[in-house]
Every structure is written in C-alpha cells, then in structure tokens.
Design a protein around this nucleic acid. Structure first.
Lengths: 328, 328
DNA sequence: GTGAAAGCGCTAACAA
DNA sequence: TTGTTAGCGCTTTCAC
C-alpha cells in the first residue's frame, strides 16, 4: 500500500509538501502541486482516512439511527439525509434499530466511539434519560419522535395538524364512530395524532370511546389483526397510524367481504408510493419525508460546524390527500 | 474528553494496562481489569476508533453501494446486510448511487480511503474496467448485477430461472404476444431474463418480435410511459423488469379502461410488499432479498478475515407467485 | 502481571 | 515555498 512517504520520496519532497498538495493548501507552488498530484494518480495513492480522522478529530461521517429501513417512510428520510450529505462530502452510517430499544442503545454506543461527527436519531420509545449522556459527547439531532426536556434540535412533521385534517375530513364524510389504530404508547407522533383526534371529536360533540383506541406496533400484520376487534365494536371507520397498517386493515376487509368505503371508511397516514394504486385508493396524509431527511441533515451539519448554535425545532406541514377509501 | 491516559493516571497503571483491560487480554489480573473497567464506566471513557483503526488498519465498517434505498428490493437487501453485520459488531456505510454512474464512482473513491474494510456493490451499468483498480485495494463482493472477467465473489438471484418460470406461466395462460419492459441494456439481470424469455418462446415456436422488447430505467414512470407503445403493438400481455414498472403499466391500464387480466395480462418481478394488495393482485417472482443481503455480507466478511479465500458465486432461487394479473 | 518505548499515517506549528 | 519536528490516541513488542 503506497503511503504519503512513498510519494514524498518519489517526488523528492517532504511528506508535509505532499499533504499540502492534497489539501488545497495555498502554501505550495502550482508546479510542485501538479507534479505531486500526478505522481499520486500514477502510483494509485489514496489517503488513509483513519490517520486523518485521528489528527483532525473528525470523521466526515454521520450516523443515522432509524427504526426500519424497509419502511418506505424511513427509506425516503434516509435518502433525503444521504442526498444532503453527499453534496458536502460526508458519509452515512446506517443503523437499523428494528424498533428495538436494546439495538438502539448498542448502536448509539457504537457510534459514540468517535466513528461519526454527529447522529441523526429517530428513536424508539424514547425517554429522556436514555439520551442525556450521549448528547453531551456528540451533536445529536432528533427527528419524528420528540423527547421533552432535552436540549437538542428537532425536525418533525406536524402530527397534530395532519391528524386534525384527516379526522375532520372523516367527520365531514359522515363517519361518526371512528376507530383508531395507533402506534406505541410512548411514540409522540402517535400521541399527538390521538390528541388531535380527541380534540376534533370533542369540538363536534362526539363521545370518545376508549375501547376503539388501540395501540400497535405500526405494522401491516397488526393492522390486519386488530381490525377484527374494531369491526366487532361496530366502528364506521378506522384511522390508522400509517399506510401499512391501513393496508392490513384493507386486507382484513377484503378477506371478509367488507366493502370500502361503503361498509367502512379507512384513512391512513404517510402517503406511501403504493397508496394511490390500492384496490381502493387510500385517503391519507402526505408527509414530506425526503425534505425531512434533508432538513435534519442540514441542521446537524450546522451544529457540527458551529459549536454553540441555538437549538432549533422545525415542524413541517403535512397535506391531506383525499382518495376513495373514506368517502361515504 | 477523557482518554486512555486519564484512566491510566487515575488507576495508577500504564496506558498499556488499560488497553489490555479493554481488549480482553489474558495478560492482566482479574482484579486490575475490574478496577479499570469500573473507572472507565465511571469516567465515561469511550475508546477512540480513529486511533484504533489507524494502528489496527481496520475500521470494522462495510460500505454498501446500492442504486436506490427507497426501492423496496434494495431496502430489504440492506436490512439483510445490516442484520448480519450487527451480529458481528460491524457498521454499515450506506451509499445511494441513485442509479448514476458518476455518483457510484465518487462513492467508491470515498470508501476506498480506508473508510471501510470491504465493499458490497450493486452496480449501475457495470463495466469491467470500472472495478479493476478498486478490487486490488479492497475486498469487494458484487450482488445482483454481475460483471464477467472479474476475480470477485458474487451473490445473485437466478434471473434466468425466475424469468423462465413466469414466462412459461404466461404462455400456459394462453398469452402469445408478450411485450417486455426491460431494465438497462447493460444490466445482467435484465439480460438474463430476456434470454429466458427468448428461450421459452423459441421452445414454444413463438416468433420473437424485437419491437415489443423495450428497455427502460426500471421506474414506475417508465412503466406508465412505455405501456402505450406496447398497447399500440397489440400485445396480449406485458412482462416487466420489476413490480414498480408493473404498477406503472397497471396505472396506464386503469386510466385507459383496459381490463387486467381480461384485456391484457401483466407480470412483474420482485414481489414487493404491496404486490398482493393491488387492484388486481400482481403475479410476480419472489426474490429472496433479505437473504441475499445476509449472504453477501457473510461472504464479504469471510474474504476480509481470510485473505485468500476462493471466490464464490452464489445464486439464490426465486419463486413464482401466481396471483390474478396474469390469468386468461 | 505490568510498563516503557516505538510507531500506525497523517497534519500543523514553527523554522529556514 | 519548503522541511523539520512533534504528536493525534491508541496497540504492541520487549524488557522487567
């Protein structure tokens, strides 16, 4: 493996000069730089990042810790992050927590070993204590799920506004008894949407029945499984935590000859690519996933470059997408 | 930031001893180890990977270079890779080439700077020359698309077998004039499936019409756009390079009141999650994406640990999934 | 069982 | 404009 000294020897200069040639330093003559660069190319010299990282105390890597890359929502967020980082020469370390708290902790410790210059975290069941330590040693920005009482920046979608929009729409369509399949109890996204749901119902003088408010793991399978319970409770419509869950609900309805939206209205959340192509196109809420990724990456980089920048909270506005699954 | 020397000073031992305590060395008394480990915990000491990477000439990171993380196929492959690496304490650097050759090259150069111990590559429009240099400096395993005349390991799905299965099925259903929407001309996956298509047609004495064999960028949009051309050619069925393209074809058919499968049969490839939930459930080929990811990661790690292991070619067998989109 | 010293490959003061 | 020197934080040989 050819190193900086080999190049230096061959060019009859010092390692410093080679370093200067490679790092666009002004303190070098154009002639020397060209000659060195040519030699590097010729000999296939590639700088050793480990050595640079050590001395510069910087890795040019960002850690992205998300619940599940096979979920389209997170895939788009990742792509947004990746596209921003690429432009500025940063790399991305992808960590899939698999919605598992232990994995999340393991990954955080892994990244904390000065492997990355900062962390973007979409936490699973977040609690303040889990992150107090890490945010003191490395810049960390959260997305999606928020934790109160933590001095960090945050980028999210406005869950309250999005849920208000779609629940109001359901009411307008004549549905009254609306079951809800939520995510985990500790998910702030889930809780904010539940709050919007309750507020809208109260404003419309509709009684809130706790027995049709279900928590889940936010998966297709859970949507499928939990539908039976709601059907037995005779709900007129179901509002789900995401489109995958809504598709699970739809599958149950198809298999049991329940007509959508005649027998039951279904509303999702996320607007995944396939939502428009379903047997009954899904009424849902569009979230700006790609932009979320770009934004959170941008903020993190700002915090890395500018040590004491004020913490920011950015809330992106979602959009109601009316299709066919929720029209009485 | 607390370093190994701080711990050494506090424990009144040398840095060497601390290092031994942290690295499960045998050359240290149990008592000293425990004391040091406690102190590390107490002081929040975290080893600096950059320093370890430099001296050990190893990063415990793997680069994964894929065309597009928002494509479910690649998302599952990534998850497979990630799940394998996690078990053995490796990290994953995700690079999204966006199906762009320049990006791919940029990322390869980025990774080559000793940022990772090996690379998993799913190339875009691969040519031998592009990779000759890199494979000499770093272990690299390819997946999906294969390049001949390169001394590397490879893991793929059996495209020829998969395409044979589904084209045979289409023929059995009575379709004769079958249009094809392929991927890029240089994609080996695409070419192998085309070969299977041709072989099956020839074996069944059906004429091959080049004008209904179309190349594309393998996107939903291209599926939508290219369908018109095939409809004008009066094809009886369309076989597509992936399910997204098939969904584009379906969208065109829906918008033009063309009934599936009565007026036209549609067959996809990949079996993405939503394929079963489409207006007309999609007949397709299931590929073992997650397992592909795990396998390719496993092979790469073997090559890293065992410098001169023989190159392997592993071909996973896909499965025909018969649904409703292709039944006459 | 433990420590001193050397050095991984690079960058940055400082000197020339 | 260029080179000398020191050192980033760790691991490893070798001596004790």
């Amino acid at each position: 493996m050819v190193g900086i000294k080999d190049i230096a020897r061959e060019c009859k200069v010092s390692a410093t000069t080679v370093s200067r040639a490679l790092n666009n330093s002004k303190e070098i003559s154009e002639k020397t730089r060209e000659y060195i660069l040519e030699t590097c190319e010729l000999r296939g010299y590639v700088p050793n990042s480990s050595a640079r990282n050590l001395i510069l105390n910087k890795t040019n890597m960002i850690g992205l810790l998300i619940p599940d890359i096979t979920n389209q929502y997170y895939a788009y967020v990742s792509k947004g992050v990746s596209s921003y980082l690429e432009k500025i020469g940063y790399g991305l370390v992808l960590c899939n927590s698999d919605r598992n708290k232990e994995n999340e902790n393991r990954y955080i410790n892994f990244l904390a070993q000065r492997r990355v210059d900062g962390i973007i975290l979409i936490p699973v069941k977040p609690k303040v204590e889990d992150y107090k330590k890490i945010i003191e040693s490395i810049p960390l920005v959260m997305a999606d799920n928020y934790v109160n009482d933590l001095e960090i920046s945050y980028v999210g979608n406005d869950n309250y506004a999005g849920a208000r929009k779609i629940v109001s729409h359901m009411l307008k369509q004549g549905y009254r008894k609306i079951g809800v399949i939520l995510g985990d109890k500790s998910s702030s996204a889930s809780n904010e949407r539940l709050m919007a749901y309750k507020d809208v119902l109260i404003e419309n003088n509709i009684e809130i029945k706790e027995e049709i408010l279900l928590n889940s793991n936010a998966t297709f399978e859970d949507g499928f499984k939990l539908t039976e319970k709601l059907i037995n409770e005779k709900v007129e419509a179901i509002f789900t935590i995401n489109d995958s869950v809504a598709m699970g609900v739809m599958k149950y309805c198809h298999m049991n000859n329940i007509q959508i939206p005649k027998d039951i209205g279904i509303a999702g959340y996320d607007d995944i690519e396939q939502a428009a192509m379903l047997p009954v196109p899904l009424t849902t809420v569009h979230q700006r996933k790609f932009e979320l990724g770009k934004t959170v990456a941008k903020i993190l980089i700002e915090e890395i470059n500018n040590n004491q920048s004020a913490k920011q909270k950015i809330i992106l506005q979602p959009e109601l997408i009316i299709r066919k699954s929720c029209n009485e």
